[in-house]
Amino acid sequence: MTRFSKFNVSAIIIGFTFLYLPIILLILFSFNESRLVTVWAGFSTKWYVELMQNQGIKDAAWVTFKVAFISSSVATFLGTIAGLVMTRFGKFRGRTLFSGMIYAPMVMPEVILGLSTLLTFITLAIDRGVLTVTLAHITFSMCYVSVIIQSRMSSYDDSINEAALDLGCTPFRTFLLITFPIILPAVVSGWLLSFTMSLDDLVIASFTSGPGSTTLPMKIYSMVRLGVTPEINAVSTILVGLVTAGVITASLIGKRQRQQLAQS
């Protein structure tokens, strides 16, 4: 019955406060009547209404969603293939190198990653814009997808595929009918993770974006430099909501998958 000891309770309170107080304040003040961010003057949704009329923010939001959707889809496709190769093809020449290269973007400082992609685009004379931001996002989110797929495949029973082959299914159809449906939850959670990471990326986007491809985090950052307004709080609240929803869905899918595995 030590579970609710004073120490445990206070540890939880301090921990959660430390983590979430800033976010809670931000959400709270996005519903503030007053323009002053630090003075509470009653509940209002007027900043959300105002937000809807701000063309700059709406444009940035559209760019962000476009980039997030396309980059997470492509990253999921590539990351899934990479994950499958790493787990299904056994040993091949250059496997260690390939594995290292998949993980590299995870451990590389974002600034370096942003700078190096920027240099690449300059060298290749690709005009910076939505395309370059998307490409850069694919690069770093793909490795997360491949890690998720790899961890799913490590508990995948290869004899399931062999059973399908044995029953007369061609290797390609086996992938479509058996492997893919079984790992689908992992693919979906990989997509959600890449989507949210693309949504909240600031560093890499600022390196690789050009005129007309300002993303929401960049827009917010530039607005903050002119002073924090409740409007920023409102847009940030929406962003927080989206990211939270994405992460929770991804982890629920993962949890359900683990339960299914435990059952079978």
Partner: peptide
């Protein structure tokens, strides 16, 4: 002959049932 064309079937140790 590749496995999917053989007139032979196999029962696997892990049963390998399709979970979905």
């Amino acid at each position: 002959i590749p496995p999917h064309l053989r007139p032979i079937n196999m029962m696997f140790q892990s049963y390998a049932l399709f979970p979905h």
